[in-house]
């Protein structure tokens, strides 16, 4: 392997991480929005969200990527692989984030909500000043844990031709006729990235553990 090969795999890793991060940045607020739809029981939208979460949560990321990349053009929406990849990853992580946010909303202490009501706060104020700060804290550990899983499932978008870490390694392997070294390098590199997330996750869990949980 030449230094260029190492570089190209590292570059692939960077692409993977960027895709993960973009989908996380989009998927966390999207999940919150959908959780609010479920919480407010908006008719029709509520049922649609339930269906979306149920199906996407159980759908392999590879399959979802294929569906979005190959099937959406049939209904007139065609996308570049990168956009399709981002859409896939965002939809997939948002489904899990919806459940996390919803769980936090459902468990929001009723008396704190009552207190906000009794001080005459309107819906917007109640959400922005009282509920959101609270559920952000309680959801954080689960959100970070989902982020870790998300980073691990990102290589799935290799199937629609995005040159991320897996494809980069395959290319190097194909050229050098030695597939093993590029994969070992890719694995080590990627493990370090995930390890960073896992460490963050553990730190967040310790920091935000509910009192009396130990």
């Amino acid at each position: 392997m030449t230094s260029y090969d190492y570089y190209s795999i590292a570059y692939g890793a960077l692409a993977t991480v960027s895709l993960s991060l973009i989908s996380i940045v989009l998927g966390v607020p999207l999940g919150l929005g959908l959780a609010l739809v479920r919480w407010s029981r908006l008719p029709v939208f509520n049922q649609l969200t339930i269906a979306y979460v149920s199906i996407v949560r159980t759908c392999p990321t590879v399959t979802l990527a294929l569906l979005i990349f190959y099937a959406l053009p049939v209904v007139g929406i065609s996308m570049e692989p990168v956009s399709a990849g981002i859409l896939t990853l965002t939809l997939s992580t948002a489904a899990f984030n919806t459940e996390i946010w919803r769980n936090a909303l459902v468990n929001f202490p009723q008396d704190q909500y009552d207190a906000a009501l009794s001080f005459g706060m309107n819906r917007n104020l109640r959400f922005r000043r009282i509920i959101l700060p609270h559920i952000s804290r309680t959801s954080l550990p689960a959100l970070v844990s989902e982020m870790t899983l998300q980073v691990k499932s990102t290589p799935a978008v290799a199937i629609i031709g995005i040159v991320e870490i897996t494809r980069a390694a395959i290319r190097v392997g194909a050229r050098t006729y030695e597939p093993l070294p590029p994969f070992i390098f890719a694995l080590v590199l990627y493990s370090l990235i995930v390890l960073a997330f896992v460490k963050t996750q553990r730190a967040v869990e310790r920091r935000f553990a509910p009192p009396g949980d130990h």
């Binding site: 202490p109 008396d111 704190q112 009552d114 207190a115 906000a116 009501l117 009794s118 001080f119 005459g120 009282i130 609270h134």
Partner: peptide
């Protein structure tokens, strides 16, 4: 409601 104060059994302070 702003004219009616309320004090709750479990305090309901915003943590």
């Amino acid at each position: 409601r702003t004219r009616i104060g309320m004090v709750f059994q479990h305090f309901a302070l915003w943590p």
